[in-house]
Write a protein that binds this DNA or RNA. Structure first.
Lengths: 145, 145
DNA sequence: TCAATATATATGCAACTGCATATAATTGGT
DNA sequence: ACCAATTATATGCAGTTGCATATATATTGA
């Protein structure tokens, strides 16, 4: 026999959905208003920029991001079409490639961060103190595997 | 000049995304494993079941749920095709209709809740105490308009 | 060495979403 | 009563996703 979740648990779940929805709404609205690429491009570009010229294999990116294998494959195809990343042949493994950010890619990432950081402030920073954010992070961390 | 978000704010944002992703992953996996309709159907059925025979106008449902107008319109079309809801003509407003849950709809909602409630336990209840859930809810409530 | 298995990535298809706009009915002002 | 503006809902289209599977290369064990 399975235990029913307490009201507290259910409400936490409900507010997790609501909060994520609201916060993501702010961020996406500001991205669109800024005429920027979709939100999902940011994380890819940022992970790649941190590796600079070396880049990352696709499966490494996959580990770092919240995206499926095929989702990433197609996401990269789109970002590549916009010339913000390149898929370079990979000498040590013929199946894959190294994905690297381009110079325009770095440029747009910086531009996106301008908007993104402000959006995070709108969605979170203006609503919670640093102390509360720290507390929130600690609680949420328990929900992540 | 715009203020940069503090590290605490950024980390709270990051963990909001991660936690939502992980928690939703658990729920969707369990729904799929149970051969149940998509997750999004649940809230619709539940809101309607609470109104029983009276039902709700589409715009009322829209206010209660986290879904766009056209998203809801098509969601209802799909749920209606499965015969879990009906769109009845509306005497007092010829533009719309009353949406009501059917008997099979109530049946499947109950079945979905069996799985859903367990999934919420897996995603949240097994990971946070009631006190922590309460705290989490309070913090997240600040992020919702 | 070679077949079996595992890994890295891509893709056809169907379902779902956003955006803009369409359609239809209601309301308000004159 | 009439027309403009507003409200309720639907839909064409293009873009995005999940699922299952395909393709290609690498690795392992006999």
């Amino acid at each position: 026999m399975n235990k029913k979740p307490s009201d507290e648990v259910v409400m936490a779940w409900v507010y997790l959905l609501k909060a994520q929805n609201a916060a993501m709404g702010h961020v996406e609205a500001m991205f669109k208003k800024g005429g920027l690429p979709p939100f999902s491009w940011y994380d890819v570009l940022w992970e790649l920029e941190k590796e600079d010229a070396v880049g990352l294999r696709q499966f490494q990116l996959e580990e770092r991001l919240l995206v499926s294998q095929y989702g990433l494959s197609r996401l990269l195809t789109r970002i590549e079409k916009a010339e913000y990343v390149e898929r370079l042949p990979c000498s040590e493994d013929g199946r894959g490639h190294r994905v690297v950010i381009t110079r325009p890619g770095k440029k747009i990432r910086a531009k996106m961060w301008e908007v993104y950081s402000q959006a995070i402030n709108t969605a979170v920073g203006d609503r919670l103190s640093d102390k509360q954010c720290e507390q929130l992070k600690r609680l949420l961390a328990n929900l992540v595997d």
